[in-house]
């Protein structure tokens, strides 16, 4: 918050960069302690589908489970439904007609789609490099380091990175015109840990099982991508979806760099609520959620190819 103030209201760049450094220091210190203490996570993936065994439990415990589930249902579902409530008020139609809303939708897409693409590109590049280094002499220490590198953004808030990037670009003489690209880039990097989480297991698994076979048959580059695509596309769709949603919903970076022409949906929502237009704000929230749902669906439908995979299984 202090960085935000220093940059937004006081425009004291020295103070901002000092505060950013301080935050990086604190976060790094904390992360180092956590990594020292945390045990190494060993994963083993099996392709065998999990068999389910009948559970032995009594009638009484079944009832207990049912009550617990019902309670969870009652507590969790209504807030979700309540979000959609403004859809039925007359203000909703009015809000839909406002030009500012559609501008914000457009700006959001303009940020989220390139950010997701950049994030996916970075994630795939990280994955390809990491899996190449896997189980090779001298290089085998790299994959975990690469993953840590990708997760670095979790240690340092996006706002801090954005500040650094902004100051850096300013030194290069790009000035305020670069703010759109700062927002896109930082959103992409912020989504990277989730993209990696979605991509890496499948990429590692392919490498572990088929590295020698690919090598012995000379299946490389394009041919290999074509072979792996049907197996990777659900993970890629998931990664792309995560990156999209994170960039759509992000409020940190855009709050700092948003300007008259660069108002995304969350920022617009924030501004409406800030000026006590709560009803309109609620409508905008509905639009934001619908947009998120629609984009995630598109991502898993077109990239993930649910149909294609279903067909593959049906043929077997």
């Amino acid at each position: 918050m202090a960085i935000y103030q220093a940059l937004r209201f006081e425009f004291d760049l020295n103070k901002a960069s000092f505060l950013a450094l301080l935050q990086v220091l604190i976060c790094t210190l904390f992360a180092v302690i956590v990594y020292r203490l945390a045990p190494v996570n060993r994963q083993d993936m099996s392709l065998l589908s999990i068999k389910s065994y009948a559970l032995k439990d009594s009638f009484l415990s079944k009832i207990g489970d049912a009550i617990a589930l019902l309670c969870a249902f009652v507590l969790v579902i209504p807030p979700f439904l309540a979000i959609f409530d403004p859809m039925f008020s007359p203000i909703f139609l009015q809000a839909l007609q406002s030009k500012a809303l559609w501008n914000a939708v457009f700006v959001s897409l303009q940020i989220a789609i390139p950010a997701a693409m950049v994030s996916l590109f970075l994630g795939v590049s990280f994955g390809v490099l990491a899996r190449f280094c896997m189980a090779r002499q001298y290089l085998h220490i790299l994959p975990s380091k690469l993953e840590h590198l990708g997760n670095m953004i979790l240690m340092v808030p996006g706002l801090v990175i954005a500040t650094g990037l902004f100051l850096f670009l300013r030194d290069l003489g790009w000035g305020l015109g670069s703010s759109y690209w700062v927002v896109v880039w930082v959103n992409a990097v912020m989504a990277l840990p989730f993209v990696l989480r979605a991509l890496m297991p499948m990429m590692y698994q392919q490498e572990r099982r088929f590295r020698n076979l690919y090598l012995s048959l000379g299946v490389r580059a394009g041919s290999r991508w074509r072979l792996e695509w049907p197996l990777l596309r659900p993970s890629i769709a998931q990664a792309f979806g995560y990156a999209l949603l994170l960039s759509l919903g992000d409020m940190g970076v855009i709050a700092l760099f948003g300007s008259q022409g660069l108002v995304s949906l969350p920022l617009y929502l924030f501004q409406l609520i800030g000026s006590y237009q709560l009803e309109e704000g609620a409508c905008v929230a509905v639009v934001l959620i619908l947009l998120c749902l629609a984009l995630f669906f598109c991502s898993s439908f077109f990239i993930g190819g649910r149909k294609a995979i279903g067909a593959l299984h049906a043929r077997n």
Binding site: F210, N212, L215, G218, L227, P230, L231, L312
Partner: peptide, 20 residues
Amino acid sequence: PAYERPISTLFQSDNLFPQL
């Protein structure tokens, strides 16, 4: 490189691509 050697290999498992 492996694919230019005059060699075919049969591995213990995973000789086939499940998607083909």
